[in-house]
Design a protein around this nucleic acid. Sequence first.
DNA 1: CAACCGCCCTGGGAGC
DNA 2: TGCTCCCAGGGCGGTT
Length: 275
Amino acid sequence: MPELPEVEHVKRQLAALIGTSARVSALEYFRKDLRFPLPKALLKSLPGKELLEIERRAKYLLFKFDDGWLLSHLGMSGAWREIKPGEEKILHDHVRLSFANGPSLIFNDPRRFGFIDWVAENEKTSHVRLEHLGPEPFDESFTPEYLFAKLRKRSAPIKSMIMDQRLVVGVGNIYASEALFRAGVRPSRAAGRVTREEAAKLITEIQIILKAAIDAGGSTIRTYKSADGSRGSFQSRFFVYGREGEVCLSCQKAKISTKVIGGRSTFWCSRCQPK
DNA sequence: CAACCGCCCTGGGAGC
DNA sequence: TGCTCCCAGGGCGGTT
């Protein structure tokens, strides 16, 4: 489900929902086996702490407290939503985070690929989930020189490379296909055969599409919903994702192709995206 | 190290 | 209407 735009959208909605100076009144687990075990100590240590801010790093939500961060990954099907007093829990509600002077939030995740962890104050860059992450796509360090150097001499498909969170974070399966389409590079091309100019174009297109998707509230393919239960709309603006067999919206000639690359469905136009 | 593959889990949709 | 099969936006861990 969620790539960077969806996580960023959820972050903004949660921040607006909770406001400032909210103090945790309770953290409850309804099951302890999400993808990774939930830190049991949090049940006692989190209540009483004041939420200072909600941040996003890569596809992680980070609830900032004065001595660390509650880290939340949505996996493929995870969602945070507000639960009103007296409202019944529903299937796959796994965690509840309540604020004394604010709302109660529920983490729901049918597939349980999501997880929650604690990042201590001094672990922001060394925590096991964060230490290998590459630059944010909007960071000034994500330059054509950086990308081109990383791609050089690599035989893996360019699509697999830009989805590798060590290279750049936040680009998942959907936006990888879309960004490569806009950049005019076929997803199957060996990374080392991407030119310097194409690398520069790819950065631009990754940034453009992620920004546009954030503004549209993300993309909803199947189940993704943001914190207020609404669905994203960016899926209506895909050029290639899920359009197998349809005439290309750009050249109006070739039909959109698909195949599995790196275990993920991949879409491209054979005319607009040279090998 | 790089590349690849299987796997975690559940639900929705397609096809019969 | 109901069954079975296939697929899904992420990331880890093992193997070659």
